[in-house]
Design a protein around this nucleic acid. Structure first.
Lengths: 215, 215
DNA sequence: ACAGTTCTTATCCAGTCGTATAATTCATGT
DNA sequence: ACATGAATTATACGACTGGATAAGAACTGT
């Protein structure tokens, strides 16, 4: 016995960009909470307050939506670190490096949501060319930025190979600490992870790094 | 029209342990290649050369099998690092730390398969209590081991809080370098990642680490 | 040689997935 | 006010999922 008196659910038309953003936000939230397999078209639509069919009105395929969501999360993180650079004096290489490093260990970069999304797509990077491209781009751009900041430190001999190895070390340290800090947000005191990162990087580069003013 | 002349596929009975191992190995391979969602019961059975129903003869559920596979991968990694300790002189704290660190950057620990499996289950650790338990256990055991080795270094003042922070730093560095090395196996020369790790950890601890003989 | 155990296969089931398509309702321009 | 077009809902479909169950075939002990 079906209910033939049922009416179509009422709805509002939204601006194209807002709908897209809502769907992307819903996908990010679901991936973060339950991994990629939790972000089904039905769950995403439900979270965004629409019906499943609408997703294919805004995205060619479901993968199109989830890849867009992944790219957005990654780009927001690198963007935050780069923006932190503008907060330091342009002629203070030490302060610029410290600001860049510290930016990774506070919101919005240090966020369990980011860790979840990053982890959920890490393994896809091996087979999925689109995901791999996003991964490589954000990853190498970040490491190059780090190497440039390191090479600009005062009193450093000109040695590109050493700069590369130091950038690899510092990048690995930041990655590892970011994972720890995002995975166990309650295991560290406020600002502790950033302080540990600055000390360790200072030791690696033989160049003590002061705490930026905003820690 | 079904083929009523079809015969049952012939098969061999295998020892219980071998069948279990085959199924686990198939699950690991599939997770490594295509993520957790690629390890369906049908795919696992196919890879192991059996039919899907057999999985439930050896494992209570499919999750039981995949969790067992995850635990095995993690335990093999920590076991390899601990075994490396027995290769160094017991009264040589510097050599022991160097051997422990270096073990993470050669086979069987530094392996793209391990990275894939680790990444595929990282996000589940948040919601799945079983996965979380395995994660916490292996993770903290490793960091404690590292802290013990650091505290035993000669000429180090007794300061448990400093030992903790240094262990966190070194652990993060190892994690980050391990991810890089396993994700991009061709981006580094043979032994280069281990050398970078030893140099950086030596700098963090203000205690130069020599290369173990087997690098 | 034969019976019994259990390992293994074969089949079925209810649920969910992503996608395609048709029906309808909202908003806008005139 | 009314028509037109696009945004949104509704429904259907085939494929695949993990799990349950029954039938059969390979060993084992005698």
């Amino acid at each position: 016995m079906t209910d033939h008196t049922a009416h179509r659910r009422p709805y509002r038309r939204e601006a194209e960009e807002k709908r897209r953003d809502d769907l992307i936000a819903a996908a990010i939230a679901l991936v973060s909470e339950g991994g990629a397999e939790a972000a089904t078209v039905r769950a995403i639509a439900d979270r965004a307050g629409v019906t499943p069919g609408l997703i294919r009105h805004y995205f060619a395929t479901k993968d199109d939506l989830t890849q867009t969501a992944y790219r957005l999360v990654m780009e927001r993180m690198t963007q935050s670190a780069v923006e932190a650079l503008s907060g330091a004096a342009p002629d203070d290489p030490v302060g610029r490096l410290a600001a860049f490093v510290a930016a990774n260990f506070r919101a919005p970069v240090l966020d369990p949501v980011n860790l979840s999304v990053w982890a959920a797509y890490l393994h896809r990077s091996r087979n999925d060319p689109t995901i791999n491209a996003v991964h490589q781009t954000t990853y190498l751009a970040y490491r190059d930025q780090l190497q440039t900041l390191i090479a600009a430190l005062p009193g450093r001999p000109v040695d590109a190979e050493k700069d590369r190895r130091d950038a690899i070390s510092c990048n690995a340290l930041i990655d590892g600490l970011w994972i720890e800090g995002a995975a166990l947000p309650d295991a560290f005191r406020r600002g502790e992870v950033a302080r540990i990162a600055l000390d360790a990087i200072g030791a690696i580069l033989r160049h003590p790094l002061p705490s930026p003013p905003d820690i």
